[in-house]
Amino acid sequence: MLGLAKGLSYTLKTLVGKKVTLKYPDEPIIMPDRFRGIQHFDPEKCIVCNQCARICPTQCIDLTGKKPDDPEKKGKVINTYDINFEICILCDLCTEVCPTEAIVMTNNFELASFSRDELFKDMKWLHENNTNVRKEQH
């Protein structure tokens, strides 16, 4: 009986105690700087080295390059850059290998949508996802 009474006294204490819940949709959760959210992509910096697409464990990155408009310049510039968030696991490896920090993580994590099509993000969308970009880089 003593054990039962002890438990009851604990629950009576927590009944009036501090609550720990967050008012989530009303007050956004502030994630720490390192948080791995949806990527931000900067086409200017990209050198089309394909490392991100190769390291991706789920093969969710698709990119194509093209010849630069200015024939003087060497190398390639990015043409399309798509991440399929149906299979992206936000493992952070793409940003880790990127030599120019063209692809970086942000703290944004809201991905829920009514249609699967909306999870397929293209270069324009990823470029415009430029808030809360992670400060600490590799």
Partner: peptide, 10 residues
């Protein structure tokens, strides 16, 4: 409500 309060919820 009561069960919530006991469990640190609202």
């Amino acid at each position: 409500k009561v069960v919530g309060w006991v469990q640190f919820r609202h």
